[in-house]
């Protein structure tokens, strides 16, 4: 059947069906009342980076190797290595700043870090009143525990934990083997040792 205005009438029928349907079917109602209701973010979702520490915040995993500082495309990371009184590097950051007004959430720092130390957060409520310094995240703001990481990204954190554990075990085994080898060597050549 064809009559003038058929397209208009059919279009209006579609609109009406959607409008009325939104009272009855949940999938037609797609919005969420934000501050009261929240959508669970998926595991992979990412906002800004944070630094992981294992036992206490003064022992971060980060060794201040500055790889992420170099690789970050907009160069929003700033790192200073901590040194002791004699100027010997302590393999940990004294300052670690990320300017999140510049950070573009690209995750490249996470991918290049060899120590599993920097990870992406999924906290999206980072608005601040101040325009300049408030958006620079300093070391204390960035440090978060591994438990927090496990909580926001359970699957990935488990993978990282397993990897770090395997690495630590391999290292321990290697050390033990080296000690044993040294001991065996010492046992095998006692005269040389006693002669000197």
């Amino acid at each position: 059947m064809n009559y003038p205005g058929k397209g208009l009438v059919e279009g209006l029928a579609v609109t009406a069906r959607n409008f009325v349907g939104s009272y009855f079917y949940k999938d037609r109602l797609t919005t969420v009342q934000y501050p009261e209701e929240r959508i669970q973010t998926p595991e992979n979702s990412r906002t800004f980076p944070f630094l992981v520490f294992d036992e206490s915040p003064d022992k971060p995993r980060c060794t201040a190797c500055k790889i992420c500082e170099v690789e970050c495309p907009p160069k929003c990371i700033y790192i200073v290595m901590d040194r002791d009184d004699k100027g010997k590097p302590l393999q940990r950051p004294k300052a670690f700043d990320i300017d999140i007004s510049v950070c573009m959430q690209c995750q490249i720092c996470v991918e290049v870090c060899p120590f599993e130390s920097i990870k992406m957060d999924n906290d999206y409520e980072k608005s601040k009143y101040g325009r300049f310094n408030d958006l620079v995240q300093r070391l204390p703001d960035l440090l978060k525990s591994n438990d927090y990481y496990r909580q926001i990204k359970p699957v990935k954190a488990a993978e990282v934990d397993a990897k770090l554990k395997a690495e630590a075990e391999a290292k321990a085994a290697k050390k033990a083997a080296a000690v044993a080898a040294a001991a065996a060597k010492a046992a095998a050549t006692p005269p040389a040792g006693s002669a000197t």
């Binding site: 797609t30 973010t41 998926p42 992979n44 979702s45 990412r46 573009m104 690209c106 995750q107 992406m120």
Partner: peptide, 29 residues
Amino acid sequence: GTPLLYAFKEREKILDFFETVSGSRMMCN
């Protein structure tokens, strides 16, 4: 509004998929 929002409703599902996979809805990298 009407057609655009119908399209956005559908787009939203695809963006959710992108977020699940890549971590971000639009800046997927």
